[in-house]
Design a protein around this nucleic acid. Structure first.
Lengths: 301, 301
DNA sequence: TTGATTTATATCCGAGAGATATGGATGAGC
DNA sequence: GCTCATCCATATCTCTCGGATATAAATCAA
């Protein structure tokens, strides 16, 4: 015979009611098996818990002590069940997110704000890292999900489009092209470029590919490691840069952005995560993200 | 289907071992019912707890959380069982004891010291009260047991002899009888007495009865409410007093005690408790007390 | 003393915990 | 790359034990 929660549930009810008959009613069982289970419990403890005459039931000292303990235990069991179920539904947990600064301000921040509002019990931790490091972090399980401007090739990762962004051209307001309203990619063939170092970003490579497709090889005059540095160089008059349009949001100073029209390369942002082991919290996050971007696209239709 | 401790025990074992086969061995059951019980648990929680391939078992986030909780719950169940059993064996609990100061120093203190040594988990609370109040406190369940110098009549109480004491005569060292080695009760017929007020002590009444039996009615010159006051009055030369021999122990100053020899009235101390509801701790205490006094009597044999 | 109420005992039934046998998947080793 | 060993899941059976019904025993009220 081993102790089970049933014994504790029954005992607590009897101790609360101080009556086997009423306790049995509350427990939706008949009185004899209740008496039996209490006797079993007492046998396991080798201790009298209740003093019963046919007229009154009262607790012994051991019964008083167990009553308090058992009540607390049952509450904790309940809490544990709720917690596990809640984690299972993805309502609770922790998601580790990788992203770069421009992606954060480009739409991710809004997504996270909306998500935290609907799933307040999920902790989201954001790692601002260069794209290459993000992939490493994903692989090493340092992060669970990444927002990144290039679709990964590897079979280890699953990816889907988060949102679309155009590439725009950025330059100082005193640049000779700053007066033009619309600029095509091929108009930029003779410019000097400020670009992200290709080893820090797949995006840099894809921009270069777009230029090649437009018939020229961009002359990279300056390379920077951090996207933040680009605008500083542009403001000082160092050529032009091809950047995702969302960069405009967090840029101050004398920088002008011009659309590239139909010739604009895509700067789509993808959601990437490891294949296979997505937790429920992550699945729920992905589902939320899909709904979120879906509803955001509508106004543009 | 309801959650039982079995589910938690099984789950914790599997989570510890990360193997159904090994867990089943540790649990002394076969592997299929273990798988079944884990599935039942997951069904109750509506949540996956373990990711199992035929080659590896690992915990989900929900499983991790439940593992920690369940372990703690099982430990608490264990502790609660131990505690209840321990209280049931009288090894733990609280005993409320009534006594007077003279009884405490007359032998009770030694008993309590020995008892606490053998039952360190039982809290003993001592109430120093006048005998009448002790009976009241017992009746009102303010105390569980009393050490008192008179056997109670009422059927509500059970009593047994704790230890025997003689009554001795006490007087100032300058009293005219202080030089006598032995004094019989009847020699004291013409003395003036310092006595406890009869309304505060049954013992006072029993002393008076002893004097009457010896052929005289004691002349009470001074009455005190508190036994402590007696010696003060005696030291000041106010007559004599008939007191339990143990009083000598905690008396300082110029007081002499003389045995009354064969004519000494008894001042036996009784253990009194309510009939019926003695807790296990109290029963264990009584058993200890009997053993204690038994072994103390032997040296006198 | 009788009747009502409450717990304990006796007996029966059925759900379900656990055993055995087996299937299916996966990684190791030749 | 095939075979074998290993491990978890499924299917089926058995038998324990939880719960129901009927009834006895005890106690209090009238």
């Amino acid at each position: 015979m081993s102790l089970e929660l049933r014994h504790l549930r029954y005992f607590v009810t009897v101790a609360d009611e101080l009556s086997f008959t009423r306790a049995a009613q509350r427990l939706r069982i008949s009185q004899p098996p209740l008496s039996q289970q209490i006797q079993d419990l007492e046998a396991v403890l080798k201790t009298q818990l209740l003093l019963r005459t046919s007229r009154r039931v009262e607790l012994t000292a051991a019964g008083e002590a167990l009553h308090a303990r058992a009540k607390s235990i049952l509450e904790q069991v309940d809490a544990a069940v709720q917690e596990a179920a809640s984690i299972g539904r993805g309502e609770r947990g922790r998601i580790l997110i990788g992203a770069t600064g421009s992606i954060l301000s480009g739409g991710l921040a809004d997504l996270l704000a909306g998500y935290r509002h609907e799933f307040p019990e999920v902790t989201t931790t954001l790692f601002e890292q260069a794209p290459r490091l993000q992939m490493r972090a994903l692989q090493d399980k340092k992060t669970d999900i990444s927002f990144i401007r290039l679709r990964p090739e590897s079979d280890d990762f699953a990816s889907e489009l988060a949102w679309r962004e155009d590439v725009v051209v950025a330059m100082s307001s005193i640049h000779r092209l700053a007066g033009r309203k619309r600029i095509a990619l091929k108009d930029l063939r003779d410019e000097e470029y400020v670009a992200l170092a290709p080893e820090s970003s797949e995006f840099a490579a894809s921009i270069r590919d777009s230029c090649v497709a437009a018939g020229f090889l961009p002359r990279i005059a300056h390379e920077v490691v951090d996207a933040q540095s680009i605008t500083g160089l542009l403001a000082a008059g160092f050529g032009v840069a091809l950047v995702p349009s969302s960069i405009a949001r967090f840029t101050t100073g004398e920088i002008r952005f011009r659309s590239l029209g139909a010739s604009a390369p895509a700067a789509d942002v993808y959601i990437v995560h490891r294949n296979g082991d997505q937790s429920t919290a992550l699945r729920a996050f992905m589902a939320f993200a899909r709904r979120f971007f879906q509803s955001r696209l509508k106004p543009r239709d």
